[in-house]
Design a binder for these strands. Structure first.
Lengths: 337, 337
DNA sequence: GTAATTACTGATATCGTTGTCAACTAAGCT
DNA sequence: AGCTTAGTTGACAACGATATCAGTAATTAC
């Protein structure tokens, strides 16, 4: 038999409504009665019934994670960050896989939200880049926060990483190690990260007075297989680059396999650089030079932004860009003695 | 403004209770009225309000996944299977990470269930092996189903895989390829899978009249690093095995790195076998011979069992053992001409 | 043909909260 | 003092479903 508000109100000698006020941290409760009520709540071990709360108040204390990303480590980190905040706040996470090519996505999500009275959404790439979808969320007054959006102007709450700057910095590092012939494997063109990473690369080349060899630029889709294919293509030509910079670690791993199958020694014959610092990066041999993003922290912050919007918390929080870190490992060598 | 039962009952010209009966597939509704009601429901696009349902009926349509497993691919597959059923049935999945060393785990989970009125649990390894925890669930009359339990006698609903038989079969396969000196890396001793896999291995050796060289058996914990360490130990001795059978792919990958760092060629100098068919297995070079479990299907079935118990569905479903498949790839070679 | 059983149906109470609104008290202002 | 305002409190309705139980219609039994 559960403890209800009524039990608490009897114990504390106040009305049900006053207890409710205390629970919901409403104003206009005197310190004295608040104290009495809190004591009773603790004494009886009262916990408000979430179903009743959401039935009456239309708030479910559930947020949803929208995703359509095959990278399971990435998703697991995102989930981890959100769940950390959920534990702190008593919210609950619901997973919702979406198909970003679905033209009715907006409607389906709206329906999903109504169905479960979801309080808000956390949107991850590549859904973060679907402008008409985001527009739909705005129009339906859905609360949401976004991880790594392409266009931050339209978005109230987001977290992002400095992909462009990190890519620029890594390219500089590669050049500093004496590499003149640099291959690049782009990510999926629907992800804004692909463009940021590529643009950081080309801009660094330009600033160092180097020209882009378009033969050495291949388009992948962030998967191991696409990296493998791109690697095979890049490595079959006579005029090979001395280093390949892949837009993520999985594609770099694909290149590594392609190289090893062709008897090309990494890093002696070919240096290799990835992006993301997936667990894989440290496990390959040679281990992969790459770029680490604080994905888990980003997700945590995105969830904080969302709950801030939902609860209208006093402390306004700001969208934030997180800084990536270059991780130098064995797969990138110095060509200058 | 949402459509309520009342709207439907007005439209159909019946009482709200009758509509409720149709929604809940209760008996004693004539075919004729049922049809009318269903038509009205569809016409108005009525969807029952879950909060109201769970407030009154104590059923939340939420199930929880209990996990404490660092293998993110495994978890993602599990999640995928459960979510597939959730989409079909309108249930909702809540994630709950647990610490299996926590002595108060049972109480905390009970509290969690009460808090969110969770309808049931899906328990994954290594929690599947915590007997006192499962006993607590029985005593508190919690509905649950288990993935890969160690002890199927006490458990009403479970799914398992034939780890023992698969390991036995793989060991036979290894022997058939002419390997006489076989190393083995065990998994985490808290996972029942570790013992099943090891026992399958030793039993196959025995049945083929081969003896176990305990120097070639190392204990790992299913992590890449533990495989790497075990690999270094196994490979430093003069008397090396010709093949190493690791209890999962991550540990096998660790061995591969250890070998490559020591200039040992795989598979020419050393064959390697894993377990699980993680994506990693196909991405390594050489690609890994391993054993595939239908994890996603297992999770789907576990969820079906759970919902069957909760809803008391007419069609009784049975616990089930799923069959694994040997995946033969490059890392295991034939020593016989 | 009447009684007993079974199959349907609906009026109303109920789940445990929050929202509305009115009442009361204490303080501030002419 | 009299009037306004702000702060505090509680009685009661409402959220949208399901549960209970009584009532009516249809079927079966004898």
């Amino acid at each position: 038999m559960p403890v209800t508000i009524k039990d608490v109100s009897n114990d504390a000698g106040v009305s049900i409504k006053t207890v409710s006020r205390v629970i919901n941290k409403e104003k206009n409760v005197s310190e004295k009665t608040k104290e009495i009520v809190i004591k009773s709540i603790q004494k009886l071990g009262f916990k408000p019934n979430k179903s009743a709360q959401s039935l009456r108040s239309k708030r479910s204390h559930m947020i949803a994670l929208l995703y359509n990303n095959p990278n399971k480590h990435y998703l697991a980190d995102i989930q981890g960050g959100i769940l950390r905040l959920c534990k702190e706040t008593g919210y609950n996470l619901v997973l919702q896989e979406c198909d970003y090519t679905n033209v009715n996505l907006g409607l389906e999500i709206t329906e999903f939200i109504d169905d479960f009275s979801i309080d808000g959404l956390i949107v991850t790439p590549p859904l973060s880049d679907m402008n008409e979808f985001l527009e739909h969320l705005n129009q339906t007054q859905t609360e949401y926060s976004i991880i790594a959006p392409s266009n931050t102007r339209k978005v109230k709450s987001y977290v992002s990483s400095n992909d462009y700057e990190a890519s620029y910095a890594m390219t500089n590092k590669i050049i500093n190690k004496g590499h003149l012939n640099i291959g690049f494997i782009k990510g999926h063109h629907k992800h804004s990260a692909s463009h940021l990473r590529f643009n950081g690369f080309t801009e660094a080349l330009k600033d160092r007075g180097m020209s882009l060899n378009s033969e050495w630029v291949k388009e992948g889709n962030f998967s191991f297989d696409s990296g493998f294919s791109a690697g095979l293509e890049l490595l079959k030509s006579h005029n090979k680059p001395s280093v390949i910079f892949a837009s993520n670690d999985y594609m770099a791993a694909g290149v590594m396999k392609a190289a090893q199958m062709n008897g090309i020694n990494i890093p002696l014959d070919l240096s290799l650089v990835g992006f993301d610092d997936s667990p894989l990066a440290a496990q390959l041999w040679p281990s992969l030079t790459t770029i680490r993003q604080p994905v888990e922290d980003m997700a945590y912050h995105a969830a904080r932004l969302l709950l801030g919007n939902i609860d209208g918390l006093s402390e306004e929080m700001d969208s934030k860009e997180f800084i990536s870190e270059l991780i130098l490992r064995e797969s990138l060598i110095n060509l200058i003695d």
